[in-house]
């Protein structure tokens, strides 16, 4: 019975996807054609969404500079599960043509688990659409589970983030708490890096409201 229910959920999930509207790099220039009338991704049930809390897909469009990567991490952790990450352009795979650059991060999947890459510099709108269809297929078959990897291997991802952003790096999201909530605590959830995080983390204070 529960399997039927799961299938139904996956079917529904695959047909109503919201892409977070965050242009991290140059691949974002091919998204307006994808969204608008010529290629029209809305016929697949995919639509842009402006807030991370209500978005399902994080499209990392192209190279991420280290400054952007911090914001991408914050955004990714704010998104509700299940969430899917698509890396567009060659730069998210291996640094692309900016491999010598001091300012861009090279491999996206060191910092967050990636469901799908769409390679190309930059990929054509057709490629983006075919990538989205691929993702829909994966969701329907229940294979797009990268967000679970983030909870299970949080220590690995956090370690890479700390390596790049410094030891003081922290986000307002309690990832380990969420992992416990979803029942996804694995061997890699806690480790030396999360121990370091617990040392440096200062508890969140409520924002001072001035009216």
């Amino acid at each position: 019975m529960s399997r039927v229910f799961d299938e139904l959920t996956n079917f529904a999930r695959a047909r109503s996807l919201f892409i977070l509207h965050y242009c991290t790099g140059c691949g974002a220039i091919e998204l307006p054609p994808v969204m608008t009338s010529r290629f029209d991704m809305e016929r697949l049930g995919v639509s842009p969404m402006v807030t991370p809390r209500q978005a399902d897909i994080l499209l990392v469009t192209g190279y991420v500079s280290i400054k952007t990567l911090k914001r991408v991490m914050l955004t990714y952790e704010q998104m509700g599960s299940p969430k899917y990450v698509i890396g567009i352009c060659s730069c998210t795979v291996n640094g692309g043509m900016y491999w010598q650059s001091y300012a861009t991060a090279k491999r996206l999947d060191e910092y967050m688990p990636v469901d799908l890459y769409i390679a190309g510099c930059m990929p054509r709108p057709e490629a983006v659409i075919s990538g989205l269809r691929e993702l829909m297929k994966k969701i329907e078959q229940g294979e797009a589970n990268s967000w679970k990897e983030y909870y299970r291997n949080y220590d690995y991802y956090l370690g890479n983030q700390q390596h790049l952003f410094g030891d003081q790096w922290q986000t307002p999201v309690d990832v380990i708490g969420e992992a416990e909530h979803y029942g996804l605590v694995g061997d890699g959830t806690r480790g030396e890096h999360t121990a370091l995080l617990e040392q440096v983390q200062h508890p969140l204070k409520p924002l001072e409201m001035r009216l």
Partner: peptide, 14 residues
């Protein structure tokens, strides 16, 4: 400032 050396130290490759 040698950015290639910096990149080699900081990042891993696919």
């Amino acid at each position: 400032f040698d950015s290639e050396a910096f990149v080699g130290e900081t990042f891993d490759w696919q």
